[in-house]
Amino acid sequence: MGFKIDHTFQVLEASLNGSTARQNIIAHNISNVNTPGFKQFLVNFEDQLNDSLINTKLPLKITSSKHISNGDNDLKVTRDTSPGRADGNNVNLETEMTAMVKNDIYFNAALNQINKKIAIKKYAISDGRG
């Protein structure tokens, strides 16, 4: 065995990246809450991450086995085309705010997992004395 092994770090990294992208998208949607005709962006990276895990594909794209991936993965973003308000804008402030709070919790959860994982590695390195 050894040090490489599981993909926990990669998955968690992909989660953080996805969560960051979602934060960007929420910020974009909310900053356009008063832009007539604006259609909000939707993202669901969990499903994509899940798919890549089920297909035992890594969520990371590596063009050569010698490359160290930085954990970026393609993220599919769609526009919500529903008509929305009278001015054509379909941002729902309440939904976006809730999504943001959820995203906050999700980000923190992934981050705690990373820290825990690092702590475990440290413990193993120190031969259980750390």
Binding site: A21, N24, I25, N32, D74, L75
Partner: peptide, 11 residues
């Protein structure tokens, strides 16, 4: 380049 089609930059 990482996100397929999100090119939003606010308002």
């Amino acid at each position: 380049k990482n996100t397929d089609n999100f090119n939003g930059n606010g308002v």
